[in-house]
Amino acid sequence: MSRNSSATALSLPGTQGWDFGDYPYALEPLTLPHPGEPWLSDGTAGPQLEAACRELLTATDSGALVTPPATAAELERLFWFRWIVGHHLSFVIWRLVATRLEQLASGHGDRATAAREITAYVRAYSAMMLYTGSSTREIYNGTIRPSMYRMHSTFSGTWAADYAAVRGLFRGRRLPPVPVAEAADLEREIALGHRIHLGVAAKLVADGRSLLQHLVDKPPERQPRVWTSTFDCYFLTLRAPATGHEVLAQLLRRCKAVAMDLAANGLYPRVADYSGPTPDELCTPETLTCESEVADTVLRVAALATGCPPRH
């Protein structure tokens, strides 16, 4: 990647049209620090990021950010974009959650505020599972799943380096020290995310629900470093020193692109063929509400992460 393209990928998004990648539904690499390395030491984003988020929300609300919807011939590119970019957003969400968990553990900051932020990020991760899982079964099994197999015959989401810090929370095994008044909401969001994960697996892959449950119940005892490197390589993730400003600028770039995609195509594009029954986990009122709010959830993450007042 050239120096100019690298700088662009770390810059704040504009407020005019599509500027992620070279064309709609193109990709950019994500640069993150190695797990455990600091990136947002003071816990604040700064005025420049907040202003950029305000501009993004204003442009979105005014309808200024539009892009043509994907045609039937472009669906493979659209769903590949969603697969990669949705995972990028998930990785940053995990980092944001891990930061709040560290603050709770150290006793810094207001516990109720931290608990509400963690709950919002857990909700956002559920939305990203729906977004990345919005592919048709045909494209998932014909393009996305084989691409993982070509990287490694046992390629697994458990190899994600940034997930280790939040694994206990998302699996519901270790609730952080949040106030009792906030605990119930957090537990509900964790349970919803688990159901969505099972439902998306069942929708896309034959026996996907049982395969995923097996991985959750019996994770690998040892995870060689090469697995995390393979995972990062597949998901276009670079590991290098990165400031909080750079990470959150990349978050805003992706939030804008996803919001534009959803405005143009909806979560389930009309030109896509979604044959077969919908798994029960994806038919509950809670899941359907989460589906209907994916675009708003993405923009709420942008606001929360940058300290910008949320949309009403």
Results as ranks from 00 to 15, higher is better:
S11N: 10
F91N: 14
T297S: 03
S275V: 15
A9T: 08
L49D: 00
R222D: 13
G193S: 03
W80R: 04
G109C: 12
V226T: 14
A206N: 11
G172F: 13
G168H: 09
V216C: 06
T60N: 15
L211G: 10
E182D: 15
G86H: 03
D261C: 15
R174L: 15
T287C: 03
V226M: 14
V216Q: 00
M1S: 15
R222E: 15
D280W: 12
D61P: 07
G21L: 03
D162L: 11
A249E: 00
D61C: 10
A240R: 12
P29G: 10
E187I: 12
W83E: 15
P277T: 12
E221D: 12
P35M: 11
H34V: 00
D217Q: 01
M151L: 01
L169C: 09
R54H: 13
L236E: 04
L12E: 00
F81D: 00
L251Q: 07
A305V: 05
G276S: 13
T15D: 06
H194A: 09
G14F: 06
R150K: 11
D280N: 08
V85L: 01
E55C: 13
R270H: 14
S62Q: 15
Y163H: 12
Q16H: 14
P29L: 11
Y163A: 05
T44Y: 04
T306I: 03
I190H: 05
L267D: 08
D19I: 03
V298A: 01
H34G: 09
P33F: 07
P24F: 07
V258D: 02
R188C: 14
A127W: 00
L49C: 12
I139D: 04
A242E: 04
Y234N: 10
A302N: 15
T289N: 10
P241Q: 06
E102I: 04
